[in-house]
Protein backbone atom coordinates (compact mmCIF):
# COMPACT_ATOMS: atom_id res chain seq x y z
CA UNK A 1 0.00 0.00 0.00
CA UNK A 2 1.37 3.44 -0.87
CA UNK A 3 1.69 5.89 1.96
CA UNK A 4 -0.77 8.74 1.88
CA UNK A 5 -0.33 10.50 5.18
CA UNK A 6 2.85 10.52 7.14
CA UNK A 7 3.29 12.17 10.53
CA UNK A 8 6.80 12.07 11.91
CA UNK A 9 7.46 13.13 15.51
CA UNK A 10 4.85 15.83 15.30
CA UNK A 11 4.70 18.09 18.36
CA UNK A 12 2.57 21.10 19.09
CA UNK A 13 2.21 23.30 22.14
CA UNK A 14 -0.50 25.91 22.41
CA UNK A 15 0.70 29.09 24.12
CA UNK A 16 -2.38 31.12 24.94
CA UNK A 17 -1.81 34.61 26.30
CA UNK A 18 -1.81 34.85 30.10
CA UNK A 19 -2.24 31.09 30.45
CA UNK A 20 -0.14 28.05 30.98
CA UNK A 21 1.08 26.54 27.72
CA UNK A 22 -0.67 23.30 26.76
CA UNK A 23 1.19 20.58 24.94
CA UNK A 24 -1.46 19.03 22.74
CA UNK A 25 0.72 16.66 20.75
CA UNK A 26 4.11 15.27 21.55
CA UNK A 27 6.23 13.07 19.35
CA UNK A 28 3.24 11.85 17.39
CA UNK A 29 4.09 9.52 14.52
CA UNK A 30 1.65 7.75 12.24
CA UNK A 31 1.57 6.44 8.72
CA UNK A 32 -1.69 5.99 6.84
CA UNK A 33 -1.87 4.18 3.53
CA UNK A 34 -3.80 5.30 0.51
CA UNK A 35 -7.44 4.33 0.80
CA UNK A 36 -7.04 3.23 4.38
CA UNK A 37 -9.70 3.82 7.02
CA UNK A 38 -8.07 4.74 10.32
CA UNK A 39 -9.89 5.65 13.51
CA UNK A 40 -8.43 7.59 16.38
CA UNK A 41 -9.75 7.15 19.91
CA UNK A 42 -8.40 8.73 23.06
CA UNK A 43 -9.34 10.63 26.18
CA UNK A 44 -10.95 14.03 25.79
CA UNK A 45 -8.42 16.79 25.27
CA UNK A 46 -5.62 14.47 24.16
CA UNK A 47 -5.09 16.31 20.89
CA UNK A 48 -7.22 14.44 18.35
CA UNK A 49 -8.81 17.54 16.86
CA UNK A 50 -5.44 19.25 16.93
CA UNK A 51 -3.95 16.45 14.85
CA UNK A 52 -6.74 16.77 12.30
CA UNK A 53 -6.29 20.54 12.17
CA UNK A 54 -2.59 20.11 11.43
CA UNK A 55 -3.42 17.61 8.70
CA UNK A 56 -5.94 20.02 7.29
CA UNK A 57 -3.24 22.68 7.16
CA UNK A 58 -4.90 25.10 9.56
CA UNK A 59 -2.17 24.87 12.20
CA UNK A 60 1.54 24.35 11.75
CA UNK A 61 3.25 21.91 14.10
CA UNK A 62 6.14 23.22 16.24
CA UNK A 63 8.26 20.18 15.59
CA UNK A 64 8.26 17.19 13.31
CA UNK A 65 6.99 16.66 9.84
CA UNK A 66 3.54 16.20 8.37
CA UNK A 67 3.41 14.93 4.83
CA UNK A 68 0.71 14.16 2.33
CA UNK A 69 1.65 12.00 -0.65
CA UNK A 70 5.30 12.70 0.06
CA UNK A 71 4.98 16.50 0.19
CA UNK A 72 5.06 18.59 3.32
CA UNK A 73 1.70 20.11 4.24
CA UNK A 74 1.98 23.88 4.13
CA UNK A 75 -1.66 24.93 4.20
CA UNK A 76 -5.19 23.88 3.38
CA UNK A 77 -5.79 22.19 0.08
CA UNK A 78 -8.65 20.83 -1.94
CA UNK A 79 -7.30 17.30 -1.63
CA UNK A 80 -8.52 17.28 2.01
CA UNK A 81 -11.82 18.10 3.66
CA UNK A 82 -12.97 18.00 7.25
CA UNK A 83 -16.23 17.21 8.93
CA UNK A 84 -15.93 19.55 11.91
CA UNK A 85 -16.70 18.52 15.46
CA UNK A 86 -18.75 21.68 16.08
CA UNK A 87 -20.38 21.51 12.62
CA UNK A 88 -19.00 24.87 11.46
CA UNK A 89 -22.02 25.64 9.30
CA UNK A 90 -22.39 29.21 8.10
CA UNK A 91 -25.58 30.43 9.80
CA UNK A 92 -26.43 32.80 6.95
CA UNK A 93 -26.39 30.07 4.37
CA UNK A 94 -29.11 27.56 3.68
CA UNK A 95 -28.37 23.85 3.77
CA UNK A 96 -27.88 23.88 0.01
CA UNK A 97 -25.53 26.87 0.07
CA UNK A 98 -23.57 25.34 2.93
CA UNK A 99 -23.04 22.12 1.04
CA UNK A 100 -21.96 24.13 -1.99
CA UNK A 101 -19.32 26.10 -0.10
CA UNK A 102 -16.32 24.01 -1.08
CA UNK A 103 -17.39 23.75 -4.72
CA UNK A 104 -17.95 27.47 -4.85
CA UNK A 105 -14.47 28.17 -3.49
CA UNK A 106 -13.11 25.71 -6.01
CA UNK A 107 -14.73 27.74 -8.78
CA UNK A 108 -17.15 25.06 -9.93
CA UNK A 109 -19.84 26.32 -12.26
CA UNK A 110 -23.21 27.08 -10.68
CA UNK A 111 -25.38 24.42 -12.33
CA UNK A 112 -22.84 21.68 -11.73
CA UNK A 113 -22.35 22.51 -8.09
CA UNK A 114 -26.06 22.79 -7.50
CA UNK A 115 -26.56 19.36 -9.01
CA UNK A 116 -23.76 17.83 -6.98
CA UNK A 117 -24.90 19.46 -3.75
CA UNK A 118 -28.45 18.22 -4.25
CA UNK A 119 -27.16 14.70 -4.80
CA UNK A 120 -25.27 14.78 -1.52
CA UNK A 121 -28.16 16.32 0.36
CA UNK A 122 -30.29 13.41 -0.75
CA UNK A 123 -27.61 10.96 0.28
CA UNK A 124 -27.43 12.55 3.71
CA UNK A 125 -31.20 12.19 4.06
CA UNK A 126 -31.78 15.92 4.07
CA UNK A 127 -34.05 16.14 1.03
CA UNK A 128 -36.70 18.77 1.64
CA UNK A 129 -34.44 20.83 3.88
CA UNK A 130 -32.38 22.44 1.11
CA UNK A 131 -33.65 25.90 1.91
CA UNK A 132 -33.57 25.67 5.69
CA UNK A 133 -31.08 27.63 7.72
CA UNK A 134 -28.83 25.82 10.21
CA UNK A 135 -30.68 27.20 13.24
CA UNK A 136 -33.78 25.37 12.00
CA UNK A 137 -32.02 21.99 12.07
CA UNK A 138 -31.44 19.46 14.82
CA UNK A 139 -27.91 18.63 15.91
CA UNK A 140 -27.90 15.43 13.92
CA UNK A 141 -29.09 17.17 10.79
CA UNK A 142 -26.38 19.80 11.13
CA UNK A 143 -23.81 17.07 11.36
CA UNK A 144 -25.13 15.49 8.19
CA UNK A 145 -24.89 18.84 6.41
CA UNK A 146 -21.25 18.97 7.52
CA UNK A 147 -20.69 15.51 6.11
CA UNK A 148 -22.37 16.34 2.81
CA UNK A 149 -20.29 19.52 2.54
CA UNK A 150 -17.05 17.62 3.08
CA UNK A 151 -17.97 14.98 0.51
CA UNK A 152 -19.11 17.53 -2.06
CA UNK A 153 -15.60 18.47 -3.18
CA UNK A 154 -14.71 14.80 -3.53
CA UNK A 155 -11.49 15.12 -1.52
CA UNK A 156 -8.86 12.43 -1.58
CA UNK A 157 -8.55 12.54 2.20
CA UNK A 158 -11.57 12.80 4.43
CA UNK A 159 -10.99 13.97 7.99
CA UNK A 160 -13.86 13.33 10.34
CA UNK A 161 -13.98 14.76 13.84
CA UNK A 162 -16.62 12.86 15.80
CA UNK A 163 -18.98 13.22 12.86
CA UNK A 164 -21.71 11.03 14.28
CA UNK A 165 -21.58 12.14 17.90
CA UNK A 166 -24.80 14.16 17.70
CA UNK A 167 -26.82 11.50 15.92
CA UNK A 168 -29.38 9.22 17.49
CA UNK A 169 -28.44 5.54 17.51
CA UNK A 170 -30.51 4.56 14.47
CA UNK A 171 -29.40 7.42 12.26
CA UNK A 172 -25.90 6.74 13.39
CA UNK A 173 -26.09 3.14 12.18
CA UNK A 174 -27.47 4.31 8.86
CA UNK A 175 -24.79 6.95 8.42
CA UNK A 176 -22.06 4.46 9.29
CA UNK A 177 -23.31 2.11 6.62
CA UNK A 178 -23.58 5.00 4.17
CA UNK A 179 -20.04 6.13 4.98
CA UNK A 180 -18.67 2.63 4.42
CA UNK A 181 -20.36 2.50 1.04
CA UNK A 182 -19.02 5.89 0.01
CA UNK A 183 -15.60 4.88 1.18
CA UNK A 184 -15.77 1.61 -0.69
CA UNK A 185 -16.90 3.35 -3.88
CA UNK A 186 -14.49 6.26 -3.81
CA UNK A 187 -11.41 4.72 -2.17
CA UNK A 188 -10.84 7.79 -0.04
CA UNK A 189 -8.36 7.82 2.77
CA UNK A 190 -10.33 8.42 5.95
CA UNK A 191 -9.17 9.56 9.38
CA UNK A 192 -12.03 9.18 11.76
CA UNK A 193 -11.97 10.52 15.30
CA UNK A 194 -14.54 9.07 17.66
CA UNK A 195 -15.24 8.37 21.30
CA UNK A 196 -17.14 5.22 20.44
CA UNK A 197 -15.03 2.09 20.55
CA UNK A 198 -17.74 0.16 18.78
CA UNK A 199 -17.83 2.64 15.93
CA UNK A 200 -14.05 2.65 15.60
CA UNK A 201 -13.91 -1.14 15.54
CA UNK A 202 -16.77 -1.49 13.08
CA UNK A 203 -15.53 1.03 10.52
CA UNK A 204 -11.77 0.87 10.53
CA UNK A 205 -8.82 -0.97 9.13
CA UNK A 206 -6.80 0.18 12.11
CA UNK A 207 -7.67 1.80 15.41
CA UNK A 208 -5.16 4.26 16.87
CA UNK A 209 -5.38 4.63 20.63
CA UNK A 210 -3.91 7.84 21.98
CA UNK A 211 -2.62 8.50 25.47
CA UNK A 212 -3.91 11.31 27.61
CA UNK A 213 -2.40 14.74 27.04
CA UNK A 214 0.24 15.37 25.78
CA UNK A 215 -1.14 13.15 23.07
CA UNK A 216 1.00 10.47 21.60
CA UNK A 217 0.20 7.09 20.15
CA UNK A 218 -0.25 4.43 22.78
CA UNK A 219 -1.11 1.51 20.60
CA UNK A 220 -2.42 0.71 17.16
CA UNK A 221 -4.79 -2.22 16.80
CA UNK A 222 -5.37 -3.80 13.43
CA UNK A 223 -8.94 -4.82 12.71
CA UNK A 224 -9.04 -8.23 11.06
CA UNK A 225 -12.76 -8.35 10.34
CA UNK A 226 -13.53 -9.03 6.68
CA UNK A 227 -15.08 -6.46 4.36
CA UNK A 228 -17.70 -5.55 3.39
CA UNK A 229 -18.88 -5.30 6.97
CA UNK A 230 -22.47 -5.66 7.92
CA UNK A 231 -24.45 -4.93 10.99
CA UNK A 232 -24.62 -8.57 12.14
CA UNK A 233 -20.87 -8.62 12.46
CA UNK A 234 -21.21 -6.54 15.59
CA UNK A 235 -22.82 -9.46 17.32
CA UNK A 236 -19.97 -11.84 16.64
CA UNK A 237 -17.55 -12.96 19.37
CA UNK A 238 -14.60 -11.70 17.30
CA UNK A 239 -16.08 -8.23 17.34
CA UNK A 240 -16.60 -8.27 21.07
CA UNK A 241 -13.11 -9.53 21.53
CA UNK A 242 -11.77 -6.64 19.49
CA UNK A 243 -13.79 -4.12 21.46
CA UNK A 244 -12.50 -5.35 24.76
CA UNK A 245 -8.92 -5.25 23.49
CA UNK A 246 -9.34 -1.59 22.54
CA UNK A 247 -11.10 -0.86 25.81
CA UNK A 248 -8.34 -2.47 27.85
CA UNK A 249 -5.74 -0.16 26.34
CA UNK A 250 -7.89 2.95 26.53
CA UNK A 251 -9.03 2.27 30.08
CA UNK A 252 -5.57 2.79 31.54
CA UNK A 253 -5.45 6.28 30.07
CA UNK A 254 -8.81 7.25 31.44
CA UNK A 255 -8.13 5.90 34.92
CA UNK A 256 -4.57 7.21 35.12
CA UNK A 257 -5.74 10.75 34.78
CA UNK A 258 -8.47 10.60 37.37
Amino acid sequence: MTTCIQAKNVGLTFRPKNREPVTALNDFSLEVGQGEFVSIVGPSGCGKSTFLNILLGLIKPDTGLMQLNGARITGPGQDRAMVFQEFGLLPWRTVLANVELGLELKGVEFSIRRHRATELINMAGLAGFENHYPHELSGGMKQRVGLARALATDPEVLLMDEPFAALDAQTRDLMQAELLQVWDRTKKTVIFVTHSIEEAAYLSDRVVIMSARPGRIKQIIKVQLPRPRDYEMRLSPEFNDLKSRIWDVLKEELIDKK
Binding site: N53, L56, G57, L58, P76, G77, Q78, R80, A81, M82, F84, E86, G88, L90, L101, G102, L105, K106, T153
Partner: peptide
Protein backbone atom coordinates in the same frame (compact mmCIF):
# COMPACT_ATOMS: atom_id res chain seq x y z
CA UNK B 1 -14.28 28.35 13.57
CA UNK B 2 -16.15 29.62 10.51
CA UNK B 3 -13.06 31.43 9.30
CA UNK B 4 -11.18 28.15 9.62
CA UNK B 5 -13.93 26.31 7.77
CA UNK B 6 -13.71 28.65 4.81
CA UNK B 7 -9.91 28.53 4.90
CA UNK B 8 -9.97 24.75 5.01
CA UNK B 9 -12.01 24.62 1.81
CA UNK B 10 -9.40 26.74 0.08
CA UNK B 11 -10.82 30.20 0.83
Amino acid sequence: LLINVVRSFGG
